[in-house]
Amino acid sequence: MALTAIFFYLFSTLALASGAAVIVAKNPVHAVLFLILAFFNAAGLFILLNAEFLAMLLIIVYVGAVAVLFLFVVMMLDVDFAELRAGFIKNAPVGLLVGGVVLAELIALLGARVIAPTPASSVASPIPQGVTNTEALGQILYTKYIYFFQGAGLVLLVAMVGAIVLTLRHKEGVKRQSIAAQVARGPKTAVELVKVKPGQGL
């Protein structure tokens, strides 16, 4: 248990610190790198909760794919840092206020949990005995929560269709490679044999 506690504090401290660094970092690329570090620590916390499947998924999906694209975009953007920072300072009080309210509410939530432990005891789907949590997740995801699963699938489909609708342009006059056509081409269509008489040329 002591070891778990040590790791918990390690991961949470690092997560909080890198979360703060995301906002404070001057360079947006550094900010994204800190964000990735925060993801890592969150994954570590998941592992401490014995939710290793979620931890791995967090790394594969968020760190391995989402954050890469994020980094991709940030690197290519030409952001004026001075301007950005001016806006940051101007809006800081509002941000602090909102953050403060959210924090207060979370603390209230925590207090209520300590006072009334009922919510914690009414877990919708407790992990059955003798099953790894990956299996437990699989058992309810496609049965009990099939509706949500399919709904989420539709949301992703809309996102994909939307991205394509808004960005795909078929340019006219672009030559595209058709590998099937290339492979299907035989000597009859590809080569023309011409008998050239001497001295006449083509």
């Binding site: 509706y147 949500f148 709904g151 989420a152 539709l154 949301v155 269709v161 609708v165 808004l166 960005t167």
Partner: peptide
């Protein structure tokens, strides 16, 4: 609440795209 959110998000996401349809 989950169904509420998923339905809402499905609808809204499609509407965002529709609003920008004449890109």
């Amino acid at each position: 609440l989950l169904a509420l959110y998923l339905g809402l998000e499905l609808q809204s996401l499609a509407l965002y795209v529709l609003a920008a349809f004449r890109r």
